[in-house]
């Protein structure tokens, strides 16, 4: 395996894994406050799935020789990146709908081609991930659907969440092709199958009718159907904001990193204790 290929793969898989794990936090913020027992169970199961996805991906990345410990260390030191979308706050219940629908929707679009990626363990992890993702987007859209057919307050909340999550969702496909340093090489290695802009266009074309169907307004005055290309034209993405969030200047970036570091460091004693117990037991067995 060429070294550059291994490095790129490890980077891509570990960043993907980190995104799943950090991605638990914005939605985790609402498990305790979900509006019904059914919603509580759904959201908890969904966030738990994301933990599972993180695990599948860490475990695939570990087959290339980098330990999870090293990957986590890279995340906590800021060396490794994760999806910028999770540095936005979830302020109302409607955000849970918007995230499932838009963020998981965009993620699925990014991930489906990866099931055929050239590295076996990554591809197999992605098959599993994609299978589990299928309910995530639907439960999010269902929340939005219910809110949009509800009271004035519910509709207002849904539109507000949609306004806030629309643009960050489009950013999830990464910088424009002319500005994406890794895309060409990754396509050649077949660890990426479609360009950022191609996927973004596909997402807009699929999502706009879904929004309109439940009476949401797309927060983009430039949005217009383009008959010639058979897709929507849409407004300029604020790439300044994107790069700022990549740099760690997202609204809740500090909260996210602190939560992850705290979970890891403040519970180090648990991991040590279990190791100590295992060592004691092994010692006893040797003595017996």
């Amino acid at each position: 395996m060429p070294d550059a290929y291994r490095r790129t793969l490890t980077r891509q898989m570990s960043q993907h894994a980190h995104s799943e794990i950090v991605g638990m936090l914005p939605e985790g913020n609402w498990i305790g406050r979900a509006p019904s027992l059914r919603r509580k169970a759904i959201l908890l199961a969904k966030v738990q799935d994301e933990a599972g996805h993180g695990l599948y991906l860490y475990s695939a990345a570990e087959t290339l020789g980098t330990s999870r410990e090293e990957m986590i260390e890279a995340l906590h030191s800021g060396k490794a990146k994760y999806s910028t979308i999770f540095n936005y706050p979830t302020v109302t219940w409607a955000d849970i709908g918007a995230i499932g629908w838009l963020v998981d929707g965009a993620a699925i679009m990014n991930q489906v081609p990866l099931q055929r990626t050239s590295y076996g363990p990554y591809a197999r992890a992605m098959v599993r991930v994609c299978k589990e993702e299928s309910f995530h987007q639907r439960q999010g859209y269902e929340i939005m659907m219910h809110l949009c057919s509800g009271t004035h307050e519910q509709k207002r909340m849904a539109q507000d969440a949609f306004n806030r999550w629309w643009w960050p969702s489009l950013m999830m496909f990464g910088p424009p092709d002319e500005n994406s340093p890794n895309t060409a090489q990754s396509m050649r290695w077949r660890i990426k199958r479609e360009t950022n802009d191609e996927l973004r266009q596909k997402f807009v074309d699929i999502t706009v009718p879904q929004a309109e169907a439940i009476g949401l307004t797309i927060p983009d005055p430039a949005l217009a159907w383009n008959e010639a290309k058979g897709g929507y034209d849409f407004g300029e993405i604020d790439w300044e904001e994107f790069y700022a969030v990549v740099r760690g200047e997202g609204p809740v970036a500090k909260e996210r990193m602190k939560a992850r570091r705290d979970a890891w460091e403040q519970n180090a004693w648990v991991r040590e204790a279990a190791d100590a117990y295992a060592a004691k037991r092994a010692e006893k067995r040797r003595a017996a």
Binding site: I21, G28, Q48, A51
Partner: peptide, 22 residues
């Protein structure tokens, strides 16, 4: 138990706690 979600000692333990909560 669901308060632990995202904050457990390891990702695996996170999954265990969520299973119990569910």
């Amino acid at each position: 138990l669901s308060e632990w979600t995202g904050h457990a000692p390891s990702v695996e333990v996170d999954l265990s706690l969520a299973n119990m909560a569910l």
